[in-house]
Simulated assay, not measured.
Amino acid sequence: MTIGKALRTLRGSTSQLQLSMELNVSRESISAYETGRSKLPPDISKLLIKKYNDPFLAMTIANEYTGAWCRKLDGPNVDLHRCSVKDKVVEEVIELTELLQRVSLSSPPKAISDQQRKEVEELALQSIDLIVALNHFVAVMSNEYQFDWQELWDKQLTKLIAKGYIKRK
Score class of each variant (00 low, 15 high):
A124F: 01
R102P: 10
K88A: 05
T158S: 15
V120K: 07
K159T: 10
L105W: 15
L17D: 13
V140E: 07
S127V: 13
N135H: 09
I30P: 01
Q16T: 05
K159I: 14
Q116A: 02
K155Q: 11
L125P: 05
N77R: 01
S142G: 10
L57R: 10
S26P: 01
D114N: 07
E119L: 00
G12P: 00
E95R: 04
K159S: 13
I166A: 04
W153K: 04
Q146Y: 08
P42E: 01
T9C: 03
L130S: 03
P109S: 05
S142L: 03
K72R: 06
I61T: 02
N63I: 05
P76H: 13
V78M: 00
L157E: 07
L125D: 14
K39E: 15
Q146W: 02
R102M: 09
H81C: 06
T158L: 08
H81M: 03
K51Y: 06
T60N: 08
F56H: 04
K169R: 15
V85P: 05
Y165M: 08
P76K: 15
A124W: 03
D54K: 01
M21D: 14
V25G: 09
V138R: 14
S31K: 10
V78Y: 01
N24G: 12
L100M: 15
A58G: 07
N135T: 13
Q115C: 13
L7F: 04
K51G: 06
V25R: 04
T35N: 10
L73C: 02
M59E: 07
T97P: 01
Q156W: 12
L160T: 14
M141S: 09
Y145T: 10
S142C: 13
T97H: 12
Q116K: 13
L80R: 13
V25M: 08
A162N: 06
W69H: 10
L99P: 05
K46F: 02
G67S: 09
L152S: 02
E121H: 05
Q126P: 07
A124N: 01
K163Y: 11
R168H: 07
K5T: 11
I128N: 10
L73R: 03
I161S: 08
S127Q: 08
A111V: 05
K110I: 09
K5C: 06
T60W: 04
K169Y: 09
Q116Y: 09
R71T: 10
M59C: 01
N53Q: 00
D129Y: 06
L130V: 06
K163E: 07
V85I: 10
K50Q: 08
S45D: 07
L19Y: 11
L157G: 10
K163C: 12
S142W: 04
D74H: 08
S106R: 13
V140D: 13
G164E: 00
S31V: 11
C83N: 14
K5E: 15
E144M: 12
Q18R: 02
P76S: 04
S142D: 05
L80S: 11
